[in-house]
Design a protein around this nucleic acid. Structure first.
Length: 723
DNA sequence: AATATTCCCGTTTTT
DNA sequence: CGGGAATATT
């Protein structure tokens, strides 16, 4: 018995490098694993969990928090393969928080049946809040207010303390909107994404009884992608491990790409100060990429000033050069990428091994079209889009209103969908009366109050309430039956059964929704409809990416984090796209953009191609582009340039200035000069700026160039020397 | 109430 | 360019 346990532990460590083994066998106290790309982090983390479960604790005392559901699922699977998975909690921050809030709803002060408001719901509510604050959405763009409030919540600032101490009028106005928004949200029994985190963080800091209970349950906590945690997540991790100190954080500061949504890279950088006695282990050997790919990525990230130096190395083969390709247009770029993929597939590459990454979603379209022309099957990581479709949201709204009668947002969506003769006037009256009575619309409707003054549609309203009453018991059924009942009896099925047959997708989507629900239930038989609803609300784009099935995968650079593919294309390497720049908003975090490209490049195992187009059509306009400055930071000896000249050789790091020529005083328009590359030319004009001396030169080749004398290797030539 | 039409918007990344 | 909202039309 004893011997076999030891053997099993030994097998957990057998094929690990020294630092990996050290990380796996660390048990007590804070641990930071700084894991470079492809350094076997997942393997270390799963082995460590298994090791803990075999040596010092039980699986159900372990909590592992990941960034996406996909990562959670994969980790769960891998831990189960090591035969210790049962009982271990593996979840995303958001999903875990949602579950906790339901379980401890009373202590958290939230309704047990709260609904999670998605981005659209939230936007709508915000618009309402703006209007009800007697402001206009044109002066206070919901988009902007939204991100400010979201940021505030991520930073743990409630509506109450958001404007505290600030004399800034704009800020105080947003605080008013924030307050109104919170009020609406509360009334509707809703929580938004950020609330899930903020509420739990607040709960854990205040409620020491609960904390003790959780600390007892979760004795070992692991937080993955720690570099992307925001203040709320940081607090949750800290509070959970206050007593036991067993926080294991894994991540890589060079892969921090969510600063824009409140992630604080400082969380990982100051882990050692925050957690005295922390052990730090660096995993720097890369098992994923070729030497050339790694060298290129490493050179790029070296351009960041604010970073902890890491030495990435690999024993993998040298591999092919990294390709940088310039094309004329986005269309040609897409054709080139699709053509190249087709060629590689003919040569034996599996389509599922290929991925195309882009900075902005709108770039996927051309690629998709080109892939279709080539007859290559692909998938786009855009799973959330499915749940944003009208017909899907309709169904979900029915479920929402049945689960949470306070959810007016859902009510307004379904009350006349499908059309049942309850027009805008009636709805408005109902909403008004509900508000006056401090109730939701559904609560008013089923209260039995006399609604005859509502008008002619009172009867229709009665029928609708009856319908909802009939549907309610369906929630107790299995997912499939429940959904089928709701869809058919609500009339949604009939509504979307394209009478003309022209467009049957909505109808098919309803079926797909039913299968998704029953798949979910199959995977977790104890789950309720509420659980499923929650699951759909917390789905991310990558979560829907299938690894089987042999499809080329298209996704944003953000979604690519944590994944790997043998063959990777990154498209749109143009100034303004990578690095992304938004007009009139100059606050671009160039270092974060560089990290983002770094993440993309380091996903590649064997082949990496970076491309850019000379002209790019965006939002209907075709513009001349400038290739991304990041391309010029790549080491020339690892790169194969095609379609465009390689950048002129430049000493690595800083730009070298030349002394001005001694005879510069004699230079003027008309002076003949020689340039090592362009040959003989004549100065057309010369101007001495405060910084540089600029000359316009016309060369014999006919080309005209403006160059700085401090840079250009120009030398003056006498007339008679030329003859 | 349903459909047709226009217009106007924004336009990064996402749990 | 394309989606969604507001507006016009029947």
């Amino acid at each position: 018995m004893q011997a076999s346990t030891e053997a099993r532990i030994e097998s957990l460590l057998a094929d690990l490098s020294d630092p990996q083994r050290e990380a796996v066998t660390h048990t007590e106290g804070p641990l930071l694993i700084l894991a470079g790309p492809g350094s076997g982090k997942t393997r270390v983390v799963t082995r460590r969990a298994a090791h803990l479960a075999r040596t010092v604790t039980e699986p159900h005392h372990i909590l592992a928090i990941t960034f996406t559901n996909k990562a959670a699922r994969e980790m769960q699977e891998r831990v189960e393969m090591l035969d210790v998975g049962r009982g271990m909690t593996v979840s995303t921050f958001h999903a875990w928080c949602a579950r906790l809030l339901r379980r401890y709803h009373q202590r958290a002060g939230v309704p047990p049946n709260f609904t999670i408001f998605d981005r659209q719901d939230r936007r709508k509510l915000l618009e309402e809040a703006i209007v009800s604050s007697e402001l206009s959405t044109s002066n206070w763009p919901p988009r902007v207010v939204d991100s400010v409030i979201s940021r505030a919540k991520n930073d743990m600032r409630t509506a109450g303390d958001f404007a505290d101490g600030s004399a800034d009028w704009e800020r105080r106005t947003i605080a008013r909107i924030y307050l109104a928004y919170e009020d609406l949200l509360t009334r509707r029994g809703g929580l938004d994404f950020d609330d899930l985190l903020m509420r739990v963080a607040m709960l854990l800091s205040k409620d020491s009884d609960l904390r003790a209970e959780l600390e007892d349950r979760y004795r070992y906590v692991l937080v993955d992608e720690y570099q992307d945690t925001n203040a709320a997540q940081y607090l949750i991790a800290r509070e959970l491990t206050r007593r036991n100190k067993n926080l294991c954080a894994t991540g890589d500061p060079d892969q921090s790409i969510y600063g824009w949504r409140g992630a604080n890279i400082r969380n990982i950088l100051s882990f050692e100060q925050d957690h005295p006695g922390a052990k730090v282990i660096r995993l720097e050997q890369n098992y994923r990429s070729t030497k050339r790919i790694l060298a290129a990525a490493d050179a790029l990230i070296a351009g960041n000033v604010n970073r902890k130096i890491k030495t990435l190395w690999t024993q993998n083969e040298e591999g092919a050069t990294v390709d940088v390709v310039e094309l004329e247009s986005g269309e040609e770029e897409a054709e080139r990428v699709a053509g190249e993929i087709a060629r590689q597939i003919r040569d034996g590459t599996r389509a599922g091994d290929v991925a195309v990454f882009y900075r902005i979603n709108s770039l996927s379209r051309v690629i998709e079209e080109a892939l279709i022309r080539e007859g290559i099957a692909y998938q786009v990581a855009r799973g959330v889009e499915f749940y944003n479709r009208k017909e899907i949201k309709d169904v979900l709204a029915y479920l929402r209103i049945l689960i949470n009668p306070a959810d007016d947002t859902a009510m307004l969506r379904v009350i006349n969908t499908p059309p049942r003769g309850i027009g805008p006037t009636t709805v408005q009256r109902l909403a008004q009366r509900a508000r006056a009575g401090g109730r939701s619309i559904f609560e008013l409707l089923r209260s039995g109050d006399d609604l005859s003054d509502v008008g002619r549609s009172a009867g229709k309203v009665g029928q609708f309430v009856e319908l909802l009453g009939e549907l309610a018991p369906a929630l107790e059924l299995g997912a499939r039956e429940a959904l089928e009942q709701v869809i058919s009896r609500s009339g949604l099925r009939a509504l979307y059964r394209g009478a003309d047959g022209a467009d049957s997708t909505p109808d098919a989507n309803l079926d797909e929704l039913i299968s998704a629900a029953s798949r979910f239930q199959q995977a977790s038989p104890d789950a309720t409809i509420l659980d499923w609803l929650e699951h759909t609300a917390l789905l991310s784009d990558v979560d829907t990416v299938r690894s089987e099935g042999g499809l080329v995968t298209l996704m944003t650079l953000h979604a690519a984090k944590g994944l790997e593919f043998p063959v990777v294309f990154v498209i749109g390497l143009e100034e303004g796209i990578i690095p992304f720049r938004r007009h009139e908003e100059n606050e671009v975090d160039e270092e974060e953009e560089r990290r983002l490209l770094f993440v993309g490049m380091t996903r590649a195992q064997k082949r990496l191609t970076l491309s850019h187009a000379r002209y790019r059509m965006l939002r209907g306009r075709t513009d001349r582009t400038v290739r991304s400055p990041f391309l010029d930071e790549l080491p020339r000896d690892q790169i194969e340039w095609s379609g465009a000249p390689a950048p002129s050789p430049r000493p690595s790091g800083t730009v070298e200035f030349r002394e001005l020529p001694e005879d510069i005083a004699e230079w003027s328009a008309g002076t003949l000069v020689r340039h090592p590359l362009h040959g003989l030319g004549q100065i057309l004009s010369l101007q001495r700026g405060s910084k540089w001396t600029l000359v316009d030169v016309e060369f014999q080749s006919g080309s005209r160039k403006t160059m700085a004398v401090e840079f250009a290797k120009l030398e003056r030539v006498e007339f008679d020397e030329v003859g």
